[in-house]
């Protein structure tokens, strides 16, 4: 293919992709602009409030007031809670899932097969079914309305254990583990020094999945946590909705505050995320 025709194709392809990217950005743009509108102007225009300013827009009607109001309502606390729950859950769930996956994949012990089947079969139970028994358990343990009550059930995800089991099986050769043992490495050291670095792409991917899962988790905190001071953003945002009246500008501002940090995190971890998800995909 000649060079100019190739360039035109590339340009056309990029233009098409740019169009799609813009399409994806439309709802986010709408959300951000809506977060700058007051309740009175919320329905006055599709994007911007109409007025006499440049491009027929009432620029003076756009305000940061909703964001200020969020902080008056104490949203910074809910934000901090969300960061704490999500990051703690992501770090520890990844660590425990990796350890479980390693044990199920590489350590020989009696009942390993049974345990693996048990972990696998736990995957088919819909999480919704576990809400009531989990609540009962947390109630009996006196862990309702505590951060531990929310975090503990997320720290050993069966999905993660199975994911890491497969990753360890594919990425960690038995010979390497034998060599480490001959060199006098303890099992814990082998896990940290040999295994974890080899499953690095999966760590990034799984951490992000867990972080996002907890960040967007609404049902569990809604059920487990009762105090306002312990609630994460997902619950705090839902509670902005009134029965007779909802301040949509405020709701959109809260949603922006909720979406922006995870979008940033995804941008930071996207390489790991993609490599983790595709690891093993081209292994022959």
């Amino acid at each position: 293919m000649s060079q100019p025709r190739f360039r035109i194709r590339i340009l056309a392809l990029h233009a098409f992709l740019l169009g799609l990217a813009l399409l994806v950005l439309v709802p986010f743009t709408w959300m951000f602009i809506a977060s700058l509108k007051s309740q009175e102007d919320f329905f006055s225009g599709m994007f911007f409030p109409p007025g006499d300013g440049a491009f027929g827009i009432a620029w003076d009607k756009l305000t940061w007031g909703n964001y200020k109001e969020l902080f008056n309502l104490g949203f910074e606390r809910a934000f901090l809670n969300s960061v704490f729950y999500s990051s703690t859950s992501a770090v520890f769930a990844t660590l425990f899932a990796a350890a479980t996956g390693y044990v199920l994949a590489k350590i020989d012990f009696r009942g390993r097969k049974f345990l693996t089947v048990l972990v696998l079969s736990a995957l088919v139970i819909p999480p919704t079914l576990l809400i009531a028994p989990s609540y009962e358990l947390l109630y009996r343990l006196g862990m309702l309305d505590t951060a531990w009550g929310l975090l503990l059930p997320t720290l050993s995800p069966t999905f993660g254990a199975f994911l890491f089991r497969q990753a360890v099986k594919q990425s960690v050769p038995d010979e390497l583990l034998e060599a480490a043992r001959i060199d006098g490495c303890s099992e814990l050291s082998i896990f940290f020094v040999v295994v974890l670095p080899l499953v690095r792409p999966m760590i990034g991917a799984f951490m992000l999945i867990t972080f996002l899962g907890m960040w967007n988790n609404f049902i569990s905190p809604q059920i487990v946590l009762q105090s306002e001071a312990k609630q994460p953003l997902s619950v705090a945002i839902a509670q902005l909705r009134g029965v007779y009246r909802t301040d949509y500008g405020l709701l959109m501002a809260a949603t922006v505050v909720s979406v922006a940090p995870v979008a940033l995190l995804f941008l930071m971890l996207q390489k790991q995320f993609i490599s983790g998800l595709t690891s093993g995909a081209v292994k022959g």
Partner: peptide, 18 residues
């Protein structure tokens, strides 16, 4: 810690967030 230093900056950001 020595072994984990090879992990990416993104992962350390999450650890720092904790």
């Amino acid at each position: 810690l020595l072994a984990l230093r090879s992990l990416s900056a993104g992962i350390w950001v999450i650890v720092a967030l904790v």
